[in-house]
């Protein structure tokens, strides 16, 4: 990972902005088998631990007047709960734990990834694609189970003129199947881009004259990344809610 410090030698700058995303075994060297504990595994585990600390330890006192940690737990709970309720309605609340799971995992992984030298599991398509596909498949199956063939009405825009409907149906169908792609690439792309840009600025810091500018730029980017970490978790969650709403109430 931290190759930037010795990356600049006479002759030119060498950037390795993508090295930070390498999945490596956490203990020792060697190949990465499916069961190997890697840096990705370690930071995922930390994300689970952070979720546990915030939500379980934070609320362990069950006080009527919340402590600071309990306020954070209640805030997170209320934030996602209200989102699910507002978008999916009352019947969507059955799926609140699943959506909360996604939100807490993504937001914890994102924020932990901002720790210098940390690894960000959510910067990998492997992670976001699995989550997006899980949402996509669940929502599609749920749509057919709940509504039967009426779920296909999602693609048949009844309010449009009859002549346009087949064309719209094709567009809707394509956009429906593009959902998991955009859903996953948005999250991983944003996180990856931010981290890579910070690394690039860090590479510039090797040049003495530019280094103050570089440090300022890193600071600014870091602030932006803090924002992006939360916003992308929020966007992923809210899109999940929107897709779930389509499954529960198809039709426009």
């Amino acid at each position: 990972m931290a190759t930037e410090t010795n990356g600049a030698e006479e002759g030119g700058l060498v950037f390795h902005p993508m090295d930070q995303f390498e999945v490596q075994p956490f203990f020792g060297d060697g190949a990465v088998a499916w069961y190997t504990i890697t840096n990705s595994t370690f930071w995922m585990a930390l994300a689970v631990l952070a979720t546990f600390v915030i939500l379980v330890l934070g609320s362990s006192k069950r006080s009527i007047i919340p402590t600071r940690m309990q306020s954070v737990a209640e805030l997170a709970y209320g934030f996602v709960y209200k989102m699910v309720e507002d978008i999916c309605g009352k019947e969507g609340l059955k799926y609140f734990p699943y959506i909360m799971t996604l939100f807490m995992f993504i937001v914890c992984a994102n924020f932990l990834g901002l720790i210098p030298t940390a690894f960000t599991p959510t910067s990998h398509f492997a992670v976001t694609v699995v989550m997006a596909m899980a949402v996509f498949l669940t929502v599609t199956i749920l749509g057919f189970v709940k509504n039967g063939t009426a779920f296909l009405g999602l693609f048949w825009v009844a309010s449009a003129p009859l002549a346009l409907r087949p064309i719209l149906a094709i567009i809707e169908l394509i956009s429906y199947f593009v959902r998991p792609v955009s859903h996953s690439i948005r999250l991983a792309g944003n996180v990856m881009a931010g981290h890579a840009v910070i690394k690039v600025f860090a590479g510039f810091a090797a040049i003495t004259i530019i280094s103050p500018v570089s440090v300022v730029a890193i600071t600014a980017m870091y602030g932006l990344e803090v924002l992006v970490s939360f916003i992308q978790a929020y966007v992923f969650t809210i899109l999940t809610c929107v897709y779930l709403k389509d499954a529960l109430h198809p039709g426009h």
Binding site: A33, W34, S40, V48, T51, L55, V56, L102, M104, V127
Partner: peptide
Amino acid sequence: NQIFWLILALIATYFILSRVAL
């Protein structure tokens, strides 16, 4: 590797949330 551990992490998070926290 990532998918395996991710599914494990999500299942763990789900049980922590649905059984205790929420």
